[in-house]
Design a protein around this nucleic acid. Structure first.
Length: 263
DNA sequence: ATGGCAGTTCCTAACTGA
Protein backbone atom coordinates (compact mmCIF):
# COMPACT_ATOMS: atom_id res chain seq x y z
CA UNK A 1 0.00 0.00 0.00
CA UNK A 2 1.18 3.52 -0.83
CA UNK A 3 0.18 6.51 1.29
CA UNK A 4 1.03 10.02 0.13
CA UNK A 5 0.86 13.36 1.94
CA UNK A 6 0.70 16.73 0.19
CA UNK A 7 0.00 20.22 1.46
CA UNK A 8 -1.65 21.67 -1.65
CA UNK A 9 -2.19 25.24 -0.40
CA UNK A 10 -5.80 25.44 -1.69
CA UNK A 11 -7.46 22.45 -3.37
CA UNK A 12 -9.45 24.71 -5.68
CA UNK A 13 -6.34 26.43 -7.02
CA UNK A 14 -4.42 23.13 -7.23
CA UNK A 15 -7.28 20.93 -8.44
CA UNK A 16 -5.85 20.25 -11.92
CA UNK A 17 -2.39 19.54 -10.50
CA UNK A 18 -3.79 17.03 -8.01
CA UNK A 19 -5.79 15.30 -10.76
CA UNK A 20 -2.67 15.15 -12.93
CA UNK A 21 -0.59 13.80 -10.07
CA UNK A 22 -3.13 11.06 -9.27
CA UNK A 23 -3.18 10.03 -12.94
CA UNK A 24 0.62 9.92 -12.98
CA UNK A 25 0.68 7.96 -9.72
CA UNK A 26 -2.01 5.30 -10.12
CA UNK A 27 -0.39 3.03 -7.54
CA UNK A 28 -1.02 5.51 -4.72
CA UNK A 29 -3.84 4.08 -2.58
CA UNK A 30 -4.33 6.94 -0.13
CA UNK A 31 -3.63 10.65 -0.59
CA UNK A 32 -3.70 12.89 2.48
CA UNK A 33 -4.12 16.60 1.71
CA UNK A 34 -3.63 19.64 3.89
CA UNK A 35 -4.53 23.31 3.56
CA UNK A 36 -7.53 22.62 1.34
CA UNK A 37 -8.87 26.08 2.34
CA UNK A 38 -12.49 25.39 1.52
CA UNK A 39 -15.71 24.58 3.37
CA UNK A 40 -17.03 21.07 2.74
CA UNK A 41 -19.98 22.14 0.61
CA UNK A 42 -17.66 23.90 -1.86
CA UNK A 43 -15.00 21.16 -2.02
CA UNK A 44 -14.51 20.07 -5.68
CA UNK A 45 -15.49 16.46 -5.06
CA UNK A 46 -16.78 15.45 -8.49
CA UNK A 47 -13.50 15.35 -10.45
CA UNK A 48 -11.93 13.09 -7.83
CA UNK A 49 -14.98 10.86 -7.45
CA UNK A 50 -14.94 10.47 -11.23
CA UNK A 51 -11.41 9.07 -10.81
CA UNK A 52 -12.98 6.52 -8.42
CA UNK A 53 -11.61 7.89 -5.16
CA UNK A 54 -13.56 7.90 -1.92
CA UNK A 55 -13.34 11.33 -0.30
CA UNK A 56 -13.25 12.19 3.39
CA UNK A 57 -13.01 15.91 4.05
CA UNK A 58 -12.98 18.44 6.86
CA UNK A 59 -12.59 22.03 5.80
CA UNK A 60 -13.21 25.62 6.81
CA UNK A 61 -13.29 28.96 5.08
CA UNK A 62 -9.97 30.38 3.83
CA UNK A 63 -7.66 28.54 6.24
CA UNK A 64 -6.55 25.03 7.16
CA UNK A 65 -8.65 22.07 6.00
CA UNK A 66 -7.68 18.41 5.54
CA UNK A 67 -8.87 15.64 3.23
CA UNK A 68 -8.20 11.97 2.55
CA UNK A 69 -8.69 10.43 -0.90
CA UNK A 70 -8.73 6.64 -0.91
CA UNK A 71 -9.07 4.11 -3.71
CA UNK A 72 -10.94 1.79 -1.37
CA UNK A 73 -13.57 2.87 1.18
CA UNK A 74 -12.16 3.66 4.61
CA UNK A 75 -13.74 2.81 7.93
CA UNK A 76 -14.06 4.56 11.29
CA UNK A 77 -13.57 8.07 9.95
CA UNK A 78 -12.84 10.51 12.77
CA UNK A 79 -12.78 14.29 12.33
CA UNK A 80 -10.91 16.43 14.84
CA UNK A 81 -9.57 15.42 18.23
CA UNK A 82 -12.93 15.29 20.04
CA UNK A 83 -14.12 11.80 19.03
CA UNK A 84 -11.01 10.32 20.65
CA UNK A 85 -9.98 12.67 23.48
CA UNK A 86 -13.39 14.13 24.33
CA UNK A 87 -14.85 17.59 24.05
CA UNK A 88 -13.14 19.08 27.09
CA UNK A 89 -9.62 18.51 25.85
CA UNK A 90 -10.45 19.18 22.20
CA UNK A 91 -12.60 22.26 22.74
CA UNK A 92 -9.98 24.90 21.93
CA UNK A 93 -8.54 23.00 19.00
CA UNK A 94 -11.27 21.49 16.83
CA UNK A 95 -12.54 24.84 15.56
CA UNK A 96 -9.54 24.74 13.23
CA UNK A 97 -9.86 21.85 10.80
CA UNK A 98 -6.52 20.09 11.07
CA UNK A 99 -7.22 16.42 11.90
CA UNK A 100 -8.91 13.59 10.02
CA UNK A 101 -8.30 9.87 10.26
CA UNK A 102 -9.66 6.61 8.94
CA UNK A 103 -8.84 2.92 8.80
CA UNK A 104 -7.95 0.89 5.72
CA UNK A 105 -6.64 -2.70 5.70
CA UNK A 106 -6.29 -2.56 9.49
CA UNK A 107 -4.00 0.47 9.26
CA UNK A 108 -5.18 3.69 10.85
CA UNK A 109 -4.19 6.65 8.69
CA UNK A 110 -4.00 9.95 10.60
CA UNK A 111 -3.79 13.06 8.42
CA UNK A 112 -2.56 16.20 10.21
CA UNK A 113 -2.04 19.84 9.46
CA UNK A 114 -0.03 21.06 12.43
CA UNK A 115 -0.33 24.79 13.26
CA UNK A 116 2.40 26.97 11.82
CA UNK A 117 3.14 28.89 15.00
CA UNK A 118 3.76 32.25 13.29
CA UNK A 119 6.66 33.50 15.45
CA UNK A 120 8.41 32.24 18.55
CA UNK A 121 6.68 33.51 21.67
CA UNK A 122 3.48 34.53 19.86
CA UNK A 123 0.02 33.33 20.86
CA UNK A 124 0.02 31.09 17.79
CA UNK A 125 3.32 29.58 18.87
CA UNK A 126 1.92 28.73 22.31
CA UNK A 127 -1.16 27.30 20.58
CA UNK A 128 1.09 25.08 18.45
CA UNK A 129 2.92 23.71 21.51
CA UNK A 130 -0.38 22.95 23.27
CA UNK A 131 -1.72 21.40 20.07
CA UNK A 132 1.13 18.87 20.16
CA UNK A 133 0.14 17.92 23.73
CA UNK A 134 -3.41 17.20 22.63
CA UNK A 135 -2.08 15.30 19.62
CA UNK A 136 -0.04 13.10 21.95
CA UNK A 137 -3.14 12.28 24.00
CA UNK A 138 -5.10 11.65 20.79
CA UNK A 139 -2.55 9.22 19.35
CA UNK A 140 -2.01 7.46 22.67
CA UNK A 141 -5.76 6.88 22.98
CA UNK A 142 -5.98 5.64 19.40
CA UNK A 143 -3.28 3.06 20.12
CA UNK A 144 -4.98 2.09 23.37
CA UNK A 145 -8.39 1.77 21.77
CA UNK A 146 -7.33 -0.37 18.82
CA UNK A 147 -3.71 -1.49 18.82
CA UNK A 148 -3.59 -1.50 15.03
CA UNK A 149 -0.75 -0.07 12.97
CA UNK A 150 -0.63 3.71 12.77
CA UNK A 151 0.51 5.84 9.85
CA UNK A 152 0.55 9.44 11.08
CA UNK A 153 1.31 11.77 8.21
CA UNK A 154 0.91 15.34 7.12
CA UNK A 155 2.41 18.79 7.34
CA UNK A 156 4.06 18.92 10.77
CA UNK A 157 5.52 22.40 10.40
CA UNK A 158 8.58 21.16 12.30
CA UNK A 159 12.02 20.23 10.95
CA UNK A 160 13.13 17.79 13.60
CA UNK A 161 16.86 17.86 12.86
CA UNK A 162 19.30 20.41 11.50
CA UNK A 163 19.87 18.23 8.45
CA UNK A 164 16.20 18.78 7.57
CA UNK A 165 16.99 22.44 6.76
CA UNK A 166 19.11 23.82 3.91
CA UNK A 167 20.97 26.19 6.22
CA UNK A 168 20.31 25.47 9.89
CA UNK A 169 22.51 28.28 11.20
CA UNK A 170 20.51 30.49 13.54
CA UNK A 171 17.33 28.52 12.90
CA UNK A 172 16.81 27.71 16.59
CA UNK A 173 15.21 31.16 16.67
CA UNK A 174 13.05 30.35 13.66
CA UNK A 175 9.57 28.91 13.92
CA UNK A 176 9.55 25.23 12.78
CA UNK A 177 13.04 24.60 14.18
CA UNK A 178 12.97 26.01 17.70
CA UNK A 179 13.98 23.67 20.54
CA UNK A 180 10.52 23.81 22.15
CA UNK A 181 8.79 22.77 18.91
CA UNK A 182 11.24 19.95 18.33
CA UNK A 183 10.77 18.74 21.91
CA UNK A 184 6.99 18.94 21.56
CA UNK A 185 7.08 16.73 18.46
CA UNK A 186 9.63 14.34 20.00
CA UNK A 187 7.35 13.97 23.00
CA UNK A 188 4.54 12.90 20.67
CA UNK A 189 6.82 10.32 19.07
CA UNK A 190 7.65 8.70 22.42
CA UNK A 191 4.33 6.85 22.27
CA UNK A 192 6.07 4.69 19.65
CA UNK A 193 6.35 6.38 16.27
CA UNK A 194 9.31 6.60 13.91
CA UNK A 195 10.12 8.84 10.94
CA UNK A 196 10.07 6.37 8.06
CA UNK A 197 11.79 8.72 5.62
CA UNK A 198 14.98 8.33 7.65
CA UNK A 199 14.85 4.55 7.35
CA UNK A 200 15.76 4.94 3.69
CA UNK A 201 17.39 8.36 3.51
CA UNK A 202 19.75 9.05 6.41
CA UNK A 203 21.50 11.98 4.75
CA UNK A 204 20.49 15.65 4.64
CA UNK A 205 19.54 17.67 1.59
CA UNK A 206 16.00 16.28 1.21
CA UNK A 207 13.18 18.79 1.53
CA UNK A 208 9.40 18.89 1.12
CA UNK A 209 8.77 22.65 1.37
CA UNK A 210 10.46 25.65 -0.27
CA UNK A 211 9.59 29.29 0.32
CA UNK A 212 7.86 30.96 -2.63
CA UNK A 213 10.09 33.96 -2.02
CA UNK A 214 13.71 34.40 -3.11
CA UNK A 215 13.49 31.54 -5.63
CA UNK A 216 13.65 29.08 -2.75
CA UNK A 217 13.04 26.03 -4.92
CA UNK A 218 15.42 27.03 -7.72
CA UNK A 219 18.16 27.45 -5.11
CA UNK A 220 17.00 24.31 -3.24
CA UNK A 221 16.66 26.27 -0.03
CA UNK A 222 14.11 23.94 1.52
CA UNK A 223 12.89 22.36 4.71
CA UNK A 224 11.69 18.81 5.36
CA UNK A 225 8.52 19.38 7.34
CA UNK A 226 6.09 16.88 5.76
CA UNK A 227 6.44 13.49 7.42
CA UNK A 228 5.17 9.94 7.84
CA UNK A 229 5.49 8.52 11.35
CA UNK A 230 4.84 4.79 11.74
CA UNK A 231 4.38 2.36 14.60
CA UNK A 232 7.23 -0.20 14.88
CA UNK A 233 5.76 -3.12 12.96
CA UNK A 234 4.66 -0.93 10.09
CA UNK A 235 8.03 0.83 10.13
CA UNK A 236 9.77 -2.54 9.77
CA UNK A 237 7.46 -3.48 6.90
CA UNK A 238 8.03 -0.22 5.02
CA UNK A 239 9.55 -0.66 1.55
CA UNK A 240 10.29 2.93 0.55
CA UNK A 241 9.67 6.58 1.33
CA UNK A 242 10.22 9.19 -1.34
CA UNK A 243 9.75 12.88 -1.99
CA UNK A 244 8.31 13.63 -5.45
CA UNK A 245 9.85 16.88 -6.64
CA UNK A 246 7.90 17.02 -9.91
CA UNK A 247 4.78 18.93 -8.73
CA UNK A 248 6.99 21.66 -7.23
CA UNK A 249 8.44 22.30 -10.69
CA UNK A 250 5.08 23.11 -12.28
CA UNK A 251 3.71 26.58 -13.00
CA UNK A 252 1.84 27.97 -9.99
CA UNK A 253 2.78 25.14 -7.64
CA UNK A 254 2.00 24.59 -4.00
CA UNK A 255 4.97 25.53 -1.83
CA UNK A 256 5.01 21.87 -0.63
CA UNK A 257 5.54 18.71 -2.68
CA UNK A 258 4.20 15.17 -2.07
CA UNK A 259 5.92 12.54 0.07
CA UNK A 260 4.99 8.87 -0.50
CA UNK A 261 5.53 5.85 1.74
CA UNK A 262 5.08 2.23 0.66
CA UNK A 263 4.55 -0.67 3.04
C1' DA B 1 14.73 43.38 5.74
C1' DT B 2 8.72 48.00 6.52
C1' DG B 3 11.72 42.97 2.65
C1' DG B 4 10.08 39.05 -0.65
C1' DC B 5 5.38 35.33 -2.74
C1' DA B 6 0.91 33.18 -2.74
C1' DG B 7 -3.74 32.16 -1.12
C1' DT B 8 -8.06 33.85 0.85
C1' DT B 9 -11.94 37.14 1.97
C1' DC B 10 -14.97 41.22 5.18
C1' DC B 11 -11.95 41.15 -2.32
C1' DT B 12 -7.75 46.05 -4.92
C1' DA B 13 -6.14 46.00 1.73
C1' DA B 14 -5.41 42.99 5.29
C1' DC B 15 -4.75 38.62 7.08
C1' DT B 16 -2.09 34.07 7.26
C1' DG B 17 1.24 31.05 5.96
C1' DA B 18 6.34 28.94 6.80
Amino acid sequence: MKVATWNVNSIRTRQEQVIGWLKNNPTVDVLCLQETKVVDKDFPKTPFEELNYHLYISGQKAYNGVAIFSRKPMEEINIGFAPIVGNDLAADFDAQKRVISGTIDNIRIVNLYVPNGSAIGSDKYEYKLKWFQVLRAYLAKLLERSPSDLCVCGDFNVALEDKDIYNPKGKEKHVMASPAEREALKDVLTIGLKDVFRKFNPEGGHYSWWDYRHSGFAKNRGWRIDHHYLTPELFDRALSCQIDLEPRKLERPSDHTPVIVEF
